[in-house]
């Protein structure tokens, strides 16, 4: 079965970049959301294996959405994608249970390795670690 991914980012450009990096590797982009509130809603609906989440978004930011998702599913795998590269803010997100951080702008390889790490796979193996 394909790995289902939900992309949450308010910028269409970023959603297309992430889709373009993951789709060719066999990830199924099961949904996209343009803010945190929509992201939580789609998470409930799709139940994805992985979420890529922007932090700064209108309506509900990525950290609030992460809290809600982790409250519903403590094992949820969420990669935070942010342009704000500040240690204290990253530590805060780590405490909320984020799987990895990707700082914008990023290379395709970086988002792919973050996705594989979050899913517990070794790079390019396509299999989960047991």
């Amino acid at each position: 079965m394909m790995t289902k991914v939900l992309i949450v980012d308010d910028a269409l450009f970023m959603r297309r970049l992430i889709r373009g990096a993951l789709e060719p590797l066999g990830f199924e982009i099961a949904g996209e959301a343009a803010n945190g509130a929509e992201g939580v809603e789609k998470y409930r609906e799709i139940k994805p294996d992985l979420v890529t989440m922007d932090i700064v978004m209108p309506e509900k930011d990525g950290l609030e959405a992460l809290k809600e998702i982790r409250a519903e599913n403590p094992d949820a795998r969420v990669i935070m994608i942010t342009a704000v590269d500040q240690r204290d803010s990253m530590l805060h997100a780590m405490k909320l249970g984020v799987s990895d951080f990707v700082v914008k702008p990023f290379d395709e390889d970086r988002i792919i390795s973050a996705a594989e790490k979050a899913l517990g796979r070794t790079a390019g193996s396509g299999e989960e670690k047991r």
Binding site: L12, T82, A83, V84, Q86, K104
Partner: peptide, 30 residues
């Protein structure tokens, strides 16, 4: 959205620089 992301990356560079300078978290708006 390309311009928005461009502004986000450049504005956040300034936020990160100020955070480092004043040793505090500087968050950004959308």
């Amino acid at each position: 959205s390309i311009l928005q992301e461009m502004g986000n990356i450049l504005g956040s560079t300034m936020a990160n620089a100020l955070a480092e300078l004043f040793e505090r978290v500087v968050q950004t708006s959308t």
